[in-house]
Amino acid sequence: MMITNNYTLIRKFWNTFNTQGLSVTSIFYSTDLKLTSSIQYIAKDRSKDPIYAKYLKDLTSYSKTGEDNYVESETRFAVLDGVGGYIQHGYDSSIISSRLAKYIKDYDSPSSDLKECLNTAYQQVLNDPIVEAGATTVTLSQINKVTGEMDVLNLGDSWLGVLRKGEFVEETLKQEYFFNAPYQLAKIPDNGKESNSISNKPDDADAYKFMLEKGDLVILSTDGMIDNWSRQKIANWWSENLNDTIALDVLNKKFVELVNIDSKDDSFYSEFVKEYNILTNKRYIGGKEDDITVLVVKVE
């Protein structure tokens, strides 16, 4: 006898049971999940960057999330990270991440297929005159509150992890061509600028299906967070601090503030620097200052 509401597990054993002459009876029951989410972010200070000053005349009104963006709805959640290299040619990637986020959030179809959602949203970006050029990564999830299944698409080096009882039991893997060169959805200008840039399609995204349980914490973040803190440090902090007496927004704000402090600390040994040192046989140290966006979803 197997009792489960895990569709993936049942599909896995269905044929095995049948070939052995065993009857299979499936009863799917509702997990009736309650989802509570929080979004917090801190944008990198660009006020002293001469390149941004050259192309973006009024930095005081610049995007509050920097080149990052996010989607936070009832069951659909995403983080996006605009590729900063486009500013070298005068294109602001905060625009493409913002518009792609808008179209992902607005996508409304009887189909729950995430690739259809991302393909549709990306095509709208390509047709959007507001987006002259730019590129963005995206980590996109959709949670079924009845079955507990979470579908995930990841394209690039943003991240999603499922924290359960102090450990990450599921997570996405980053997609890179080489160090610090992530997969990205791009809109290439017609004038030849950025013509050699990386340009992926939504179908290049890695697809995942995770089963959530009550008590899980789903964490989505751009690389501004995971390039600084290790998975273990993230797991330890949330496991020690998450409780029912402190609001999720309060905790997430504190978390992002702590990561931001480390990102600016020349003596902090960041994950980004660790990886760079392994690749180059160097001994650098320091945080990696970047836009930081963290979206957490508490599953109850």
Rank of each mutant, 00 (worst) to 15 (best):
V71K: 06
E72P: 00
E72S: 14
S73T: 15
E74I: 11
T75P: 01
T75V: 15
R76Y: 01
R76K: 14
R76D: 12
R76A: 11
R76W: 00
F77Q: 11
F77Y: 15
A78R: 08
A78C: 07
A78P: 06
A78Q: 06
L80E: 04
L80Y: 06
L80R: 04
D81N: 06
D81C: 09
D81I: 10
D81E: 04
D81A: 08
G82C: 11
V83W: 01
V83I: 15
V83G: 00
G84F: 07
G84Q: 02
G84E: 02
G84R: 02
G84C: 04
G85I: 03
I87G: 09
I87E: 10
I87H: 10
Q88F: 03
Q88E: 15
H89K: 13
H89R: 12
G90K: 09
Y91T: 05
Y91V: 04
Y91A: 04
Y91E: 11
D92P: 05
D92A: 10
D92W: 09
D92I: 11
D92R: 10
D92G: 10
S93H: 07
S93V: 10
S93C: 12
S93Y: 08
S94P: 01
S94K: 05
I95E: 03
I95Y: 02
I96N: 02
I96Y: 03
I96Q: 02
I96F: 05
S97V: 10
R99S: 01
R99E: 13
L100N: 05
L100S: 07
L100D: 03
K102C: 03
K102P: 00
K102H: 13
Y103W: 05
Y103V: 08
I104F: 04
I104P: 01
K105Q: 15
D106T: 11
D106S: 12
D106Q: 14
